[in-house]
Design a protein around this nucleic acid. Structure first.
Length: 480
RNA sequence: GGGAGCGUGGUCUAGCUUGGUAUGAUUCUGCGUUUGGGACGCAGAGAUCGCGUGUUCGAAUCACGCCGCUCCCA
């Protein structure tokens, strides 16, 4: 008995079902009453807040400020940049009525805010003294997902941040795009312990309306790549239709150079997939809503009093050192149940305190990520908890990095390409500069160019599709 | 775009073929005993059987329509 309480499938056997159960049962999120929408519960939101605060600190340090935009965009605005509109139109939710009366201009529930923000930018920017303009918005975007929805990965409304900047020249804008990508990479690696590969998107996969898109990608355990964040160099593609102009020092008007970039709660989905196991969630310590859970164990009233007292003392000390800690004092549950419960919820470090430990002036550490247990002296405990949490983070990152490295392979022909793809690999393969080849590969294998890394030019191989001389060696995979 | 499955207390589920307002477990509440890897006893709570229409004396069950959810493949 009891086995049905936790996750009922193995991660390696039914990944999709495992993912859904883990999200719901660990109480990160739940389904909303509308298809394709989810509700973030406090544990899920807490992770998002950690990411938000980490990003906000970095944004502020690089001169960005936060603002807020409305969620409705008139159709006339959204349609101003043609490619952009064509790209987003199929998944736009339209508001056509207020009460019973039809609206004149349909209103879009923002799928992204470029058009709205840039209308404002053209009002705000007059001279070179107004630049650079660096603004970020924490909000949600709505993109209708009719089929194949999945919590955090593919939902019709998602939490994200979208940054928008305006610069005097191309160099500065391009530097911004690169800086943001490395800021993203740092955040994902240092907060979520997820290794990523950075580079450029292909022409085919770039953001509609951008000159080029930088991306960071990671590989999930089911062999699909997940785009974890993007940073777009927009050039003057938007400043022209939206009239974002400034007067330079010689009072000559020119169009500004722009960027936009974003990460979403998809990062949480990636974190669940990369680190989770058959027992459920495994949380990276730095974003865990609870980092340390203390389980008091006792048999007699006498023990109970003693152990609750020491548990509380340890809790207070840890809390003084800014560790997110909680004592599980639920009396109706046995320690065994609590162990399983907190493991399903992914709490990185569990401290068990019972009579046997106290006799030795010790407590027991149980680590979630590798399930190792050992004794620890109570003296100096706080310092050891702090270093243990750091070590857990490093371990988790190293494990994930090893898997990513092991699963990244190079091939030189189409047959090997297909074989490796079936094994769920991230594949480095040479292709020519004919966009048709990329397209046909996608049609035939459903794998696409995920990222073109730096130094990936390769003119000495043959395109895996047409056998003509290759140009680059990008990374391919099936994507989410 | 194509296909499959499902909808019954909070959760999982029996019943549906062969119509008679619902089975069991878990959860929840109270009391007591318990507590080192998913404890137990007793008492109690909790369901317009996804929605609508029809057939019928009577519908979870039959018919038709609708809605929703999940999964798989392109």
């Amino acid at each position: 008995m009891g086995k049905e309480i936790g996750i009922t499938v193995k991660k390696s056997e039914d990944f999709s079902e495992w993912y859904t159960q883990t999200v719901i049962k660990s109480e990160l999120a739940d389904y909303a009453p509308v298809k394709g929408l989810i509700v973030l519960r406090p544990d899920g939101y807490s992770i998002w807040e950690s990411l938000k605060s980490s990003l906000d600190t970095k944004f502020a340090a690089t001169g960005h400020r936060n603002g807020f935009l409305p969620s409705l965009i008139p159709e006339s605005l959204l349609a101003k940049e043609k490619d952009h509109f064509a790209g987003f139109n199929p998944e736009v939710f339209w508001v056509t009525k207020s009460g019973d009366s039809e609206l004149g201009d349909r209103l879009a529930l923002r799928p992204t805010s470029e058009t709205l923000a840039y209308t404002l930018f053209s009002k705000w920017i007059r001279s070179w003294r107004d630049l650079p303009l660096k603004i970020n918005f924490w909000n949600t975007a709505l993109r209708a997902e009719i089929k194949a929805t999945k919590p955090f990965l593919r939902t019709s409304e998602f939490l994200w941040q979208e940054g928008h900047t305006v610069h005097m020249n191309m160099e500065e804008a391009e530097k911004e795009v690169t800086d943001i990508l490395s800021l993203y990479k740092k955040t994902v690696e240092e907060e979520l312990a997820i290794p990523v590969i950075t580079g450029k998107k292909s022409e085919k996969e770039k953001f509609v309306g951008a000159v080029y898109t930088l991306t960071m990608e990671s590989l999930m355990p089911d062999g699909k790549a997940l785009q974890m964040g993007t940073s777009h160099f927009l050039g003057q593609n938007f400043s022209k239709p939206f009239d974002v102009k400034y007067a330079d020092k010689e009072n000559v008007e020119s169009y500004a150079w722009q960027t936009s970039w974003g990460v979403s709660w998809r990062l949480i989905g990636g974190m669940i997939m990369v680190h989770g196991d058959d027992k459920g969630l495994v949380l990276p310590p730095r974003v865990a809503p609870i980092q340390v859970i203390i389980i008091p164990i006792y048999y007699s009233d006498e023990d109970k009093e003693k152990i609750q007292k020491i548990s509380q003392e340890i809790e207070e000390k840890l809390r003084e050192s800014k560790i997110r800690v909680q004592v599980d004092n639920r009396e109706q549950l046995t320690p065994g149940f609590k162990f399983n419960d907190w493991e399903m919820k992914g709490i990185p470090l569990r401290i068990e305190i019972g009579p046997k430990d106290l006799e030795k002036n010790k407590v027991t550490f149980a680590r979630r990520h590798n399930r190792q247990k050992d004794d620890q002296e109570i003296v100096g405990l706080v310092d050891r908890v702090i270093s243990e949490l750091d070590k857990i983070h490093e371990d988790m990152f190293a494990d994930a990095k090893k898997i990513l490295d092991d699963k990244t392979v190079e091939v030189n022909n189409y047959d090997d390409f297909k074989t490796e793809l079936e094994k769920g690999r991230l594949i480095k393969a040479p292709i020519c500069d004919n966009p048709k080849c990329e397209e046909e590969i996608k049609e035939e294998t459903s794998a696409d160019v995920r990222v073109i890394t730096e130094n990936s030019s390769d003119t000495s191989s043959k395109c895996i599709k047409c056998s003509n001389q290759s140009v680059i060696r990008p990374l391919f995979a099936r994507g989410y």
